Amino acid sequence: AVSDRLIGRKGVVMEAISPQNSALVKVDGETWRATSGTVLDVGEEVSVKAIEGVKLVVEKLE
């Protein structure tokens, strides 16, 4: 799938994300809905860990 190429890519949080709420991230110039197990604020850099349906699963870039 096209989205599989995004695993391992870096992105930027466009809307705050919490474990209860998905929000938008920008990866390679494209906007995607994403979820995370932690709270992520706007502007934080993230890494794509997986794809669940049409959502990216991201975590904060260390």
Rank of each mutant, 00 (worst) to 15 (best):
G53H: 03
I17M: 14
V48E: 01
V54W: 13
A34H: 02
E44Q: 11
V25H: 01
E44D: 15
E15N: 06
T31E: 09
K60E: 03
R33P: 15
G8I: 02
R9E: 07
L56A: 01
A16C: 13
I17G: 15
E59Q: 08
G37R: 10
W32F: 14
K26C: 15
L61D: 06
R5L: 08
S36I: 04
G43E: 01
G11R: 00
G43I: 01
L24K: 06
E45W: 15
L56G: 01
E52M: 10
E62K: 10
L24W: 13
T38N: 09
L6E: 04
K26M: 14
E52N: 11
L56V: 06
V13P: 00
V27Y: 00
V39D: 10
V42S: 04
M14E: 05
T35N: 06
K26N: 10
K55T: 15
G37C: 14
G37D: 15
A34R: 00
E59C: 08
A23G: 15
E45T: 11
I7H: 04
W32G: 01
V57L: 08
L40P: 02
G37A: 14
V2L: 13
K26R: 12
A23F: 15
Q20F: 13
V12G: 01
V2P: 15
M14D: 03
K49R: 09
G37K: 13
P19H: 11
A16I: 15
K49N: 05
A50N: 06
A50H: 06
V27E: 03
L61E: 06
K49G: 04
I51P: 01
L24E: 04
K10E: 07
G29D: 07
L61S: 08
S3L: 14
V58Q: 01
E44S: 09
A23S: 07
G8H: 04
V27R: 00
A50M: 06
L24M: 09
V57K: 05
V39R: 12
D4I: 11
D28F: 03
K26G: 05
E59K: 05
V39P: 14
E52S: 10
T38P: 04
L56R: 00
E62D: 12
M14A: 06
K49E: 04
I51L: 07
S3Q: 09
V58E: 01
V27S: 01
S18R: 08
R9K: 14
L40H: 03
R5K: 11
Q20P: 14
A50S: 09
S22E: 14
I51E: 02
M14G: 01
S36N: 04
S47I: 15
T38M: 11
L56D: 02
E15P: 04
V48K: 02
V13K: 00
E44L: 07
D4M: 09
K26I: 12
P19K: 10
E15A: 12
S36E: 04
I51H: 04
A1R: 09
V25F: 00
V39L: 11
G43F: 03
L40C: 04
M14W: 06
S18C: 10
E44G: 05
V54M: 14
L6Q: 02
K49W: 05
I51R: 04
G53V: 02
I7N: 04
E15D: 06
P19S: 12
K49P: 02
E62Q: 12
D4Y: 07
V12P: 02
M14R: 00
E44F: 06
D28T: 01
A34F: 06
E15W: 07
D28P: 00
L56I: 08
A1C: 14
G11Y: 00
M14Q: 06
W32A: 02
G8P: 02
A16Q: 10
I7M: 05
T38C: 13
E45N: 07
K55H: 15
K26V: 12
V57C: 06
E15M: 10
T38E: 13
D4G: 08
V12L: 07
V46Y: 01
G8T: 01
I17L: 13
A34V: 08
V57S: 03
E59D: 07
S47M: 15
E52P: 00
I17P: 13
N21F: 10
Q20C: 14
A50Y: 07
K60D: 02
N21K: 12
S18E: 07
G29R: 04
D4R: 08
S36G: 05
K55E: 13
G11H: 00
L24A: 05
V12N: 03
A1E: 11
L61N: 06
V27I: 13
R9A: 10
K26H: 08
V2Q: 10
I17E: 15
G43K: 02
T31A: 07
V42T: 05
V57Q: 05
G11F: 00
I7P: 05
V2E: 10
A23I: 15
M14I: 14
S3E: 08
D41G: 11
G53D: 05
G11Q: 02
A23Q: 06
L56E: 03
R9G: 06
V46P: 01
D41W: 13
E44V: 09
L6R: 01
R33Y: 15
G29E: 06
D4S: 10
A1P: 11
I7S: 03
V46F: 06
V46K: 02
T31W: 12
D28I: 02
V48L: 02
G11S: 00
V42R: 06
D28K: 00
K26Q: 10
E45S: 09
K26W: 14
R33D: 09
V12H: 06
E15L: 10
I17S: 15
L24D: 04
P19Q: 10
V12F: 07
G8V: 02
D41F: 15
R5M: 07
V25W: 00
R33Q: 14
L24H: 05
D41M: 15
W32R: 03
V54A: 13
V46L: 01
E30M: 10
V39Y: 14
V57M: 05
W32D: 03
K60Q: 05
G8S: 02
V48D: 03
V12I: 12
G8M: 00
E30G: 05
G43P: 01
G8W: 00
G53W: 03
L56P: 02
G43S: 03
K49C: 12
V27P: 01
L24I: 10
E30S: 06
V13E: 01
V48R: 00
W32M: 04
S18V: 07
K10T: 13
S3M: 14
S18K: 08
K60N: 04
S3I: 11
S18L: 08
D41I: 15
P19E: 13
M14L: 13
I51A: 03
W32P: 01
D41T: 14
T38K: 07
G8F: 00
L6Y: 05
V27W: 01
L24Q: 05
R5P: 06
T38V: 11
L40E: 01
E59P: 00
A1T: 10
K49V: 15
E59T: 08
D28W: 05
V58C: 05
G53Y: 03
I51C: 04
K10S: 07
S18D: 09
R5I: 07
V46M: 01
Q20R: 08
S18I: 06
S22Y: 13
E30R: 08
E62C: 12
L24R: 04
P19R: 07
V54T: 14
V46H: 03
T35D: 06
T35S: 08
Q20W: 13
A50E: 06
V25P: 02
V54G: 15
A34Y: 06
A34G: 04
V57G: 00
K10D: 07
L56Q: 00
E62G: 12
V27D: 01
D4K: 11
D41Y: 15
V42K: 08
E44C: 12
A1M: 12
L6D: 04
V13M: 09
V54L: 14
S36R: 00
T38D: 14
G11C: 08
D28C: 14
S36D: 05
T38G: 10
S47P: 01
S47A: 10
V2M: 12
S18N: 10
L61P: 05
V48M: 01
V13G: 01
R33M: 15
S22R: 03
M14V: 14
N21G: 14
G43C: 14
V12A: 04
A16R: 12
K10W: 11
D4F: 07
V2T: 10
E15F: 08
N21P: 04
A1D: 11
Q20I: 09
T35F: 08
A16H: 08
L61W: 13
D41H: 15
S47N: 09
L56N: 01
T31Y: 14
V54K: 12
V39T: 12
K55G: 09
D28A: 07
E59A: 08
K26L: 14
L61V: 11
V39A: 12
T35I: 14
A50T: 05
L56Y: 02
L56K: 02
V46S: 02
G37M: 13
E45M: 12
E45F: 13
E15V: 12
T38W: 08
R5D: 09
D41V: 15
I7V: 09
